[in-house]
Amino acid sequence: MNPHVIVIGGGTAGMEAAGRLARAGMSVTLIEKGKDLGGHLRDWYHLFPDRRSSDEVLEYLKGQISHQNIRLLTGQQVTGFIHKGNEFTVSTGNGDTINGDALLLATGFDLFKSERKEEYGYGIYENVITSADLEAMFRKKEVKLVSGKKPERIGFLHCVGSRDEKVGNIYCSKLCCVTAVKQAIEVKKIFPASKVFCFYMDMRMGGALYEELYKEAQEKYSVGFIRGKVSEVAVNINNRLVAKVEDTLVGRPLKMELDMLVLMAGMEMSEDAVRLAKETNLQMGENRFFKPADHHFGTNMGNVNGVFYAGACTAPLNITETISHARSAVTEIVNYLNTGRK
């Protein structure tokens, strides 16, 4: 009989890994808590750096998992697992148990809940939205203010929920800078006459073609970049947002009216994964993501033999990195199962 691998999480990492495991001869059960596969990718419109449609990647992933060795369990929440020797038993919310030889956690991330940064008034002020809300508007092809009017000035606020001790996240979510630049370009394409500003602490454009995208935003779209984190948002009598920020490169406070402010929500370890980690004694790092066995050679493993990790449950990762990380997890699992499970 083929070894049986249980993959928890049906987003990018879980789908890619399940497909690769199946083709490597494993029998796979892919468990997803939602009713559909695809995770956050389903909510996204275009991907950086080349603005490829996220649907294309979804199609690719669906192709990956169409394999006879993969059993899909959607709409099922994993509540815990136990292991006896080298055998794992996973239990789900509706009382089922599934036995397997190895476990792959691909539980992904939660977007930071932007209402926690109360000073920005997300949910209180109309037209303060998140990066995810904007993607949803892009998907519906309906980018507009609550009044239905076209925005004339749009701000993107970097590092919402990232690099912020006040919300308990000192890490950088890494993707928000490039997402802001990508979204700024999208917005300028829809509203060429608008003016777009990014409020940033540092521009962290470290991926392939990111810096080129940044330059394109400046060169073709005149996107303005203001170094400073917005401290407070209010609404004035004309129902326009007013952002307070320090223009740190001038060394003076700056006040600016905006029609729309997009909060670049960071990434956090998913709440469900935190619960699972606590119940099953899987170690988490200071950033609460799963703690890798080794930062160079063991990012797919943790502290329990036979439990593997893939994707953004280990750290903020982009789609490219998530797919690579899922593939390396497959290599590790195959190696583990073929060499005496040590």
Binding site: R252, L254, K255, E257
Partner: peptide, 18 residues
């Protein structure tokens, strides 16, 4: 006030340059 009041300021000079 030391604040840069972006909306009160005149940006005709920078427009000319750009």
């Amino acid at each position: 006030a030391r604040v840069i009041d972006y909306d009160a300021n005149d940006r005709s000079i920078v427009s000319y340059i750009l």
